[in-house]
Amino acid sequence: MSWQTYVDEHLMCEIEGHHLTSAAIVGHDGATWAQSTAFPEFKPEEMAAIMKDFDEPGHLAPTGLILGGTKYMVIQGEPGAVIRGKKGSGGITVKKTGQSLIIGIYDEPMTPGQCNLVVERLGDYLLEQGM
């Protein structure tokens, strides 16, 4: 299965009638492996800052998580494994796997919990596969 298929069928799929606004799978080096059409264009330093927060949990809290120029306030995640951000009625979930970052961006009416389920479910699967 190609990385793009993971994005199209597992990240952008419907969950209880809602779906992510956009999603992507990015390598730890910041290279995009696959992304949905609407996924924002991001700067290398933005992705580097996200990676740094996995290594040093709390790094992003004072400045916010910035992706494609959009600032998300960092809320409780799981140190070293999941970063969650909030902006208005939407937000972002980033899960780290062995070699990649799974990123999901959502907005109303999708709920934070639903975004977490979609992103983290795929992340768990990739972790199990050693990817």
């Binding site: 709390g58 809290a61 004072p62 306030m73 960092v74 809320i75 409780q76 909030k86 902006k87 208005g88 009625s89 937000g91 934070p112």
Partner: peptide
């Protein structure tokens, strides 16, 4: 609390 979530730090 920001947008319905606690800012943990």
């Amino acid at each position: 609390v920001h947008d319905g979530f606690v800012l943990q730090k």
